Simulated assay, not measured.
Amino acid sequence: MTPQSPASSGNTASVLEQDTVAHLRSLPAIYEKVKSQLERRIIGQEDIIRDLFIALVCRGHCLMVGVPGLAKTLLVRSLAEIMDLDFQRIQFTPDLMPSDITGSEMIENTPDGQREFRFIKGPLFTQLLLADEINRTPPKTQAALLEAMQEQQVTVAGHTYALEKPFFVLATQNPIEQEGTYPLPEAQLDRFMFCLKLDYPSRSEEVDILLNTTTDEDVSLDEVITGSEILALQHAVRQVVVPQSVAEFAVDIVQGTRPQAASPESSLGKYIRWGAGPRACQYLALAGKAIAALDGRFNVAREDIAQAVPIVLRHRVLANYRAEADRVSIDTILADLVTSIK
């Protein structure tokens, strides 16, 4: 199936609200502004920048996996600079407690001489949160993020506090050094919309990195988007139409990751230990909507869903020992799955 033609996109635009159409048509230009600002400081990583922007307009959280020195933290800090959002960074360590990130109640004296509890908000009360090396803190502290990521609220001492919208969690993780780490449980991994893998830069990019980061020159970035604009884009992206056939294609992909759906002789049946849940279908559709909007279309095509498959499913599908023995990666398994679905 080919992507929707301009004519069909125009027919879809006629049934959308005027404001929604305006926001969708402005999305590619806004992305180019975000990209151009980040490229003043970040060399390479074009795909990662695009995927982060897609997650932001889909209300999704991202897990960024890469070895040290690939500018994961710098990328998130730079993203915060060009957006009018509150930003906090938490360096996760083995001794970090849940109250260190959510906040806690303190006893203080009132003007009339009484004592009362007052809630002191932690760094989780922000709009853009960088959870640095999230796998270095115990599960008890990791779990403190679950409610915030899913419900956008925090419960402390029986009281519930809403988080300001928009709210994003961008977490980093080192895939190599496992000593003293706590692997994220599947329940928390499933809260991340995307799992982004950062690769080493090319030779020319690494030369540019060397030349640009060994001087005293400080590159300042301009603010290009506000929180209210992000909320408007999030609403507009969700109005992009997913045809019935494309929805079935997304569901077929997710159900195809489940071992019971594949024959034992196929590569999927041989290598998959556990498949993705229903949330993966939702995230595939949302990512497809954003990808279509960035391409100037108001209808999601099968190609949009297929493009989102690796970043949506790679952390939701568990390979078995046989895949590891045969050196078959999750991305290879997912690529075979997409091509096998008619």
Rank of each mutant, 00 (worst) to 15 (best):
I90G: 00
E17F: 00
C195D: 08
E206N: 11
L268F: 12
H23S: 12
T257E: 01
D331C: 01
E32P: 00
G296N: 09
G275V: 08
S266D: 14
M193K: 05
Q234E: 05
V300W: 09
F249D: 00
I253V: 14
E303R: 09
A285N: 06
L52C: 05
P201M: 12
T102M: 15
L96W: 09
Y200F: 15
R273F: 14
I176R: 00
L128N: 05
V169Q: 04
Q152V: 07
L337N: 05
S340K: 10
L231Q: 14
E147G: 07
V300D: 08
A250E: 07
T141D: 01
Q239R: 13
T214D: 01
I82N: 06
Y31T: 00
V15A: 10
V65I: 13
D199T: 13
D295M: 05
Y271C: 01
I120C: 06
R77Q: 15
E17P: 00
A290Y: 02
A319Y: 03
I43W: 04
V312T: 12
F125I: 08
L130W: 03
T226W: 07
P123M: 08
Q178F: 08
M106A: 12
A143W: 08
A157E: 15
P310M: 10
R302I: 13
E177Q: 12
F87H: 01
A55W: 05
R40Q: 15
L130S: 02
Y321H: 13
L63W: 08
E46S: 13
E133A: 05
E229F: 09
L27T: 01
A162V: 03
D19N: 13
N212G: 13
T73R: 07
L170T: 02
